[in-house]
Nucleic acid binder design. Sequence first.
DNA 1: CTCTTGACTGAGG
DNA 2: GCCTCAGCCAAGA
Length: 109
Amino acid sequence: MHQETLNFFDKVYDVARLIPYGKVTSYGAIAKYLGAVRSARMVGYAMNGSVGKDVPAHRVVNRNGLLTGKQHFDGTNLMQQLLESEGIKVIDNQVQDFGKVFWDPGKEL
DNA sequence: CTCTTGACTGAGG
DNA sequence: GCCTCAGCCAAGA
């Protein structure tokens, strides 16, 4: 179902909140689920305002599993710590076993 | 309305 | 596998 009543940002927040504990996904995957695979950049752009909105932005990384958005968190390694606390191994801003912890909303939903 | 920015992605060398 | 270029699109000034 497409909650078209919500704005693009709200949709992104919605999907992000659905990411299971210990899993991660990519901006493109979220965008694709929203039917806007070409707006992957907008997903990240939207996440920029996710702070303070109960959105687990730390579970969203780019297609390479790289923590491209970690610089938007308070600390320099806050995002990594959050992921590691969920059982996700992160080394040098790179999610390990990315294919195993990857969660695709387009397929899981 | 126009221009810039950006937590992206895919294709090409 | 690494680097570079181009496309895409929403929001803010």
